[in-house]
Design a protein around this nucleic acid. Sequence first.
DNA 1: TTGATATCTTACCCACGGGTAAATTCCAAC
DNA 2: GTTGGAATTTACCCGTGGGTAAGATATCAA
Lengths: 220, 220
Amino acid sequence: MPKDTALLPTHVAAFANRRRDPGTKREAVLKTAAELFLEKSYGRTSMNDVAQRLSITKPALYHYFRNKEEILIECYRLGTGLIEEILNEIAEHCGTGLEKVEAFIYSYANVMTVNFGRCVMRLDDADLSPDALGEVRKYKRKIDRRLRSFIQEGIDDRTIAPCDPKIAAFSIAGALNWICHWYEPEGALSAEEIATQFARTLTRGLAAPRTSARPRVAGK
Amino acid sequence: MPKDTALLPTHVAAFANRRRDPGTKREAVLKTAAELFLEKSYGRTSMNDVAQRLSITKPALYHYFRNKEEILIECYRLGTGLIEEILNEIAEHCGTGLEKVEAFIYSYANVMTVNFGRCVMRLDDADLSPDALGEVRKYKRKIDRRLRSFIQEGIDDRTIAPCDPKIAAFSIAGALNWICHWYEPEGALSAEEIATQFARTLTRGLAAPRTSARPRVAGK
DNA sequence: TTGATATCTTACCCACGGGTAAATTCCAAC
DNA sequence: GTTGGAATTTACCCGTGGGTAAGATATCAA
């Protein structure tokens, strides 16, 4: 007889019956794990905690993941996947440097309100094995390079006031990454609001003086 | 016979001879603990690690601190103390709102390159007991309120362009707090450089349009 | 219906780390 | 010297958590 999965808290339903559907269950484990990692940190989250929230027992988890770290790595992978998407989208789409930066800020802020995205910047790198750590670090550098290049583009096409792209990128990335430290899904600010506001506010700080001098050779 | 403490790595010297004032030793423990907490995180730092770096044994530590958390709390206390100083200084000193914000950014960025200061924003709140956590949270809120009030002052006195102080404060705080995630004492950028650059860059993002309209009634 | 297999549980092992009890060493004052 | 007491150490306890072995049970294919 099929159990009553209707009003079961979120992904727990995936384990309601024993049906063979490893994909869905793996995903369910991943989602609850990410939740817990963000609530209590990776270190303070035990495999038992994860199992308990799914109403199963610890060893059952090891049918879907080889060990705890593999879960963590998968969280990172999904998170970086999200970022990768927006990065590529922007690189193709938009026009001026400033517009690209604005699009970046908007999309990135949004990602920082999605659990897997939050994992990438909020969880502690150092919990990863050397190999995985290496990959993540490499990826983060890539993000940084991209943002800097957008800014440089903006400086070149005169939509962004001359500045040190390195420092500017650090500032923007910091402001954005910090979102995942204070954002809470049930909080006062919605993801949309945050994204739009940040895009506006941060962009204004970069923009080259608008109205007065239109297209002119910018003296330093 | 007095031991050769001359070229001993940093604070280890404090424990070289046995009859030395407890104050110095407590301080030495605190410094090395903070170092380790920042290198490996609180959770991954064992009391043995701390002891080892000081060339003593674990139980010796318990002569100077009741338990591991007390060390952590003390780190937070010293860190918030540093921030408190600059907060008060600024509140008295400077003139316009924009100037206050700039001074805040400069000093705060500097604090984020000092170990105890870094602890406050980089270490994980959740490792604290409920009581201590409450205090720290309260203190962080205070910092946020102060920054917002500086920004509001700037908007009122027309040195800062109209904006949402809440979002602006989040951005600035994020950019600054993130420093302690990428700063490294031996890195390319010195604390001074970071502080000055950030003060300049972030301030420019806020400043009301300068030259053209001097003192005028600003329409909303 | 009936295996065969994926799924899940009970029971367990073991390393690690916080913390303590009690013995020991060193310094200082007498 | 000797001795009293503080500073340190050795040896230990025990809870927690990652991970596994082996048995129990449901599901699917035939």
